[in-house]
Each structure stands twice: as structure tokens, then as C-alpha cells.
């Protein structure tokens, strides 16, 4: 046990508040601990020197005078004869507060449910048609913007109708794979056909 606890026991012992078994343990500790022993000695000395410290040192005549003055003041002082009566049940403070709270809540509820003025509500969702019409209206009101818009639209249309480049007609003999896929016999046939055609004045 720490000396702090033993010192508290010393204080309790000085007040006569330490139980028997603890007194024995404290005595045993004090035999071994010089610090706690010195502490007890200083407290004992302090206690002895503080004896009668609060004695006001008044003479009997002073007490008699004090009593006389008190009695004269008591005579002029009337005790509150009635013990304060409790208010009737529903007028007690807690019920008054509960009632007031209920009335406030009821008023707020009624206001939102019935009395609150209802203005024209803005629709929360706008249809696509309405939003497009609004955009067109904005564009139509500005000629410069309208021209730019029309140009953009026309360019988009032209791009949409132009056939993609990979769909343009391609001569099959331009494709090198075509020639690579032919057999020697087929190549010889084509060669003879071309020679014959040249001999007859066809395209070279």
C-alpha cells in the first residue's frame, strides 16, 4: 500500500474514525516507516496547537447580549405560518408544461395540415417536349444563333446521308489477294484471254 493511503488512515485515526483492525495495521506500518511517523507527529502537533482556535473568546455578558438582540429580532419576525400548499393536481408545474407543449405541437400540426397557404406549385419534372420547345424558342429569338444552329444541323444531315468510304465500289482485280488465290491453270487462262483480247484490239 502506498504511503498516501497510510497518511489518510493517519488522518482518520486522529478523528477516531479508523476501525480496530486497520489501527493495528497502521501501527505496524508506522513502526517501519519513518516518513509516515513524522507525518503523524506533525499532524498531532498541529491538532494540539489548533485546539480552541475557533474560540471566539466572548464573555457570558456578550452571550446574554447576543440572546437579547436575537429575541428582539425574533419578536418582530413572523414565521411563515402556512406550509406552502401544493397546487391542485392539474395545476402543478409539470402538467402545465406538458399542456403547453401539447398545445404548441397541436398548433404546428394544424398549421401544416390545414391552415398553411398553398401557392401554385412548380412542376418537379419537365417533359422533353417542353424542354426542346424552350430551347427552340431561345434559338429563334436570336438570328445569329439560329444561323449557326441551322448550319450545324445541315452539316449533321450531310454527314448522315454520305455513304461511308468503305462502301464505295472497288474493282475486284485491284485486290492483290484475288491474284494470290488463283491457281496456275486459272492464271494461264486469264493470260491467254487477255492476249486474245489484245490481238483483237481490246484494252491493253
Amino acid at each position: 500500500m502506498r504511503c498516501e493511503t497510510w497518511k489518510k488512515w493517519v488522518s482518520d485515526a486522529l478523528d477516531g474514525e479508523l476501525a480496530g483492525e486497520r489501527t493495528v495495521r497502521l501501527d505496524r506500518h508506522l513502526k517501519d516507516c519513518a516518513g509516515c511517523r513524522a507525518y503523524r507527529e506533525s499532524l498531532t502537533r498541529l491538532q494540539a496547537d489548533a485546539e480552541g482556535l475557533a474560540d471566539p473568546g466572548l464573555a457570558p455578558g456578550d452571550w446574554a447580549d447576543f440572546s437579547r438582540r436575537l429575541e428582539s429580532r425574533l419578536g418582530g419576525s413572523v414565521p411563515s405560518r402556512e406550509v406552502p400548499q401544493r397546487a391542485p393536481f392539474f395545476f402543478r408545474r409539470k402538467w402545465v408544461w406538458a399542456g403547453a407543449s401539447f398545445l404548441v405541437l397541436a398548433f404546428i400540426g394544424t398549421y401544416f395540415a390545414v391552415l398553411r397557404p398553398r401557392g401554385v406549385r412548380e412542376p418537379m419534372f419537365v417533359s422533353i417536349e417542353d424542354s426542346v420547345a424552350r430551347v427552340f424558342g431561345e434559338i429563334g429569338s436570336n438570328s445569329e444563333l439560329e444561323n449557326a444552329f441551322n448550319q450545324e444541323i445541315m452539316a449533321s444531315i450531310a454527314e448522315a446521308v454520305r455513304p461511308p468510304e468503305d462502301e464505295a465500289p472497288v474493282a475486284f482485280d485491284d485486290n492483290p489477294l484475288f491474284w494470290e488465290g488463283l491457281s496456275d491453270r486459272e492464271l494461264a487462262y486469264i493470260e491467254s484471254a487477255l492476249r486474245k483480247e489484245r490481238d483483237h484490239g481490246g484494252p491493253s
Binding site: L70, R73, L74, S77, P79, S80, R81, V83
Partner: peptide
Amino acid sequence: LTAFKSMP
């Protein structure tokens, strides 16, 4: 005086 007034 306080005690006397509070006696009831």
C-alpha cells in the same frame, strides 16, 4: 432568523 422563519 432564517431558521425561525422556516420552522413551519
